[in-house]
Design a protein around this nucleic acid. Structure first.
Length: 484
RNA sequence: GCGACUGUAGUCUAGUGGUUAGGACUGGAGCUUCCCAAGCUUCAAGCGCGGGUUCGAAUCCCGCCAGUCGCACCA
């Protein structure tokens, strides 16, 4: 199994570890080791570089992970993240209690207390839809982690954020003012989010504590049909998997302008699809055929998302195309919801025009992207294992090797290491044969090896060895940086 | 959360009531002027956790934790 092989490398070399492992582990939680931390940071930096540069009015902010209950009343999470569940006493299947009541009694169960639902189930002898057995008491299952803030007694109910996005909506008013009232405005947050998954399967794919990179773009809905830079991407062929292709599984290459003309998707949305694809194909170097945008059906997407395509990458270890992120046109759902719940005016007034800005959300799961990079670029070539990570995300840019551990070689190698360390993460290794040291670096994705040998002492040149081709060439020490 | 199966160094694995728990790979130190996993010497590292049965438990029983699969869940 490929996921075992990747997990093997990840554990052995220090990408990720099960959390709290010496106490038996903790399902749905993982720690990042030294390589994983380097690599994730690089992915995040590449993400920042790519998306924040789309517009000079896009910035990163940082918000708290803990927020009071009312925030999630306003966001809708209290209502939508809180499912009343009942379990069959006989076959142990679980069902949404409110759905059963609505179905059997044909009455709304909205806002109904759990006690009342339990009573209704019992009084009307609503049976288990699967085996006819008796249903047990209704319990709320909340996907959010609830915590209490403050000393016991007067503590306030709060939650760990289930997505980073809310921070951008909550600071919208201040951010908009400090950025001097211009739209579009982008607020990015890269950070942790928490969801109390019932059963976090699939190893590293569904976590209870995870990292997100999200960009909320606030804009005037009247401008959605255009984007000032649309012409720059109008001929780009996008990898689209629309609903009507579900049965065939085929991905269509559709140019940006055709998407606009024939599919009626607004240019503002398409522009960002193109930039997302650029990130995956040009920056992350994923093979084109592994990438697609998947259109979600009305059932699959949240009611407030007017347009929603997921970003998917074919990930062998996870068994197919997997969601890496999504592009969500959320309209004024977020700011409108918070305006209603908080009583705070969140509309803007631009040259006499008053409106609540709409939101286009670019949302990515960092950990999933991290895992998928390992998956896509890992190869077992028989006599060596190699992860052909693109330079921008490889934990180390180069390994520095003195051919032998002899006085002068070591001294020169240390100097090379020190000077390259100024701009790159580099790794120094003087133990084992030179071949073994190359292989060690291949396995963690280091693109280059720099070897200091006896010739170096004569003419100041070193060997640069390239990871994927294993080719070597000599360059002067002062030219190394140009060659890696 | 339910059911089935599973858990021996970092990895793979031998061991079915009495073993100094064995091996391979990996890792560390050293030898070899060493450019693609050579070899030699040497060191380190393990029975998931907790109870119970027994004179004695990696081995049998129970609970927990974790993993895989199925069901449910995935706003």
């Amino acid at each position: 199994m490929k996921s075992d092989e990747i997990m093997d490398v990840a554990l052995r070399r220090g990408f990720i570890f099960p959390s709290s492992e010496i106490y038996g582990g903790f399902s749905g939680f993982y720690d990042y080791g030294h390589l994983g931390t380097l690599m994730r940071r690089k992915w995040e930096d590449a993400w920042r570089k790519h998306y924040l540069r789309l517009n000079s009015n896009f910035f990163e902010i940082d918000a708290t992970n803990i927020m009071p209950k009312n925030v999630f009343v306003g966001s809708g999470h209290i209502e939508n993240f809180n499912d009343p569940l009942t379990e069959c006493g006989k076959c142990h299947s679980r069902f949404r209690a409110d759905h059963l009541i609505e179905e059997f009694l044909e009455r709304s169960a909205e806002g109904m207390a759990t006690d009342e639902m339990s009573k209704l189930l019992k009084e009307n002898s609503i049976p288990c839809p699967k085996c006819g057995g008796q249903l047990l008491d209704v319990k709320m299952f909340n996907m959010m982690f609830e915590i209490s803030v403050g000393s016991t007694g007067e503590s306030e109910v709060a939650y760990l954020r289930p997505e980073t996005a809310q921070g951008a909506f909550l600071t919208f008013k201040r951010s908009f003012n400090t950025l001097r009232g211009k739209l579009p405005m982008g607020l990015a947050i890269v950070g942790r989010a928490y969801r109390n998954e019932i059963s976090p399967r699939q190893g590293f794919y569904r976590l209870r504590e995870f990292n997100q990179a999200e960009l909320q773009i606030f804009f005037d809905p009247d401008t959605i049909e255009d984007h000032p830079n649309f012409d720059s991407i109008k001929d780009v062929k996008l990898r689209m998997f629309p609903l009507q292709n579900r049965s065939t599984g085929e991905v269509d290459d559709i140019t940006a302008s055709d998407l606009n003309k024939n599919y009626g998707i607004p240019k503002f949305y398409i522009y960002h699809l193109a930039k997302i694809q650029e990130f995956y194909l040009d920056k992350m170097k994923f093979p084109r055929e592994l990438f697609r945008f998947r259109e979600l059906s009305a059932d699959e997407r949240a009611f407030y998302n007017k347009i929603h395509w997921d970003v998917e990458v074919y990930t062998e270890s996870l068994g197919g195309y997997k969601e890496m992120g999504g592009l969500h046109y959320r309209t004024d759902h977020d700011l409108g919801g918070h305006q209603n719940a908080s009583g705070e005016k969140l509309d803007v007034n631009i040259e006499g025009k008053k409106f609540i800005p709409h939101v286009l959300e670019l949302s990515f799961g960092v950990d999933r992207n991290f895992w998928t990079l390992l998956d896509v670029f890992y190869k077992d070539e028989g006599d060596r294992k190699v992860i052909s990570l693109p330079k921008v995300v490889a934990p180390f840019r180069a390994g520095i090797f003195p051919l032998q551990k002899k006085g002068d070689l070591e001294k020169v190698a240390k100097n090379v290491y020190d000077s390259l360390s100024e701009c790159y993460d580099v790794f120094y290794d003087d133990s084992g044969s030179i071949g073994r040291r190359y292989r060690r670096q291949d396995e963690i994705g280091t693109p280059f090896g720099v070897t200091i040998d006896f010739q170096t002492l004569e003419d100041n040149t070193v060997t640069i060895r390239e990871r994927d081709s294993m080719d070597q060439h000599r360059v002067k020490i002062e030219d190394i940086w140009k060659n890696i």
